[in-house]
């Protein structure tokens, strides 16, 4: 089931030409990104939001990074039994 969250989270990321999330913390637990499944960009006014779907091997998460305020958000989580 898909859970919409939009929670601010701490993310460890490598910034090359674009940010690449490596891990993030959710309720004190460190979740390591096993695979970045998809990445795309959205424009919100002057801000560019980098969006990612990632998996830790069990669940699928959607992360976003706002280029303007340099914050990461956990947008949604899919626990795997459909969306």
């Amino acid at each position: 089931m898909l859970l919409n969250l939009h929670e601010r989270v701490s993310v460890g990321a490598v910034f090359e030409s674009s940010p690449n999330p490596v891990w993030f913390s959710l309720h004190g637990e460190k979740i390591v990104v096993k695979e970045v499944c998809y990445r795309w960009k959205e424009r919100e006014g002057n801000d560019i939001i980098h969006k990612f779907t990632i998996t830790d091997g069990f669940n699928v998460f959607e992360l976003s990074f706002s280029a303007l305020d340099a914050c990461w958000y956990l947008e949604a989580m899919d626990e795997g039994d459909g969306k």
Binding site: C37, Y38, T53, V60, D78, K83
Partner: peptide, 15 residues
Amino acid sequence: SVEQAANPNLRGKPI
């Protein structure tokens, strides 16, 4: 196809 590519949980399923 984009939805299935973005979410591995949807791959191979009728969506």
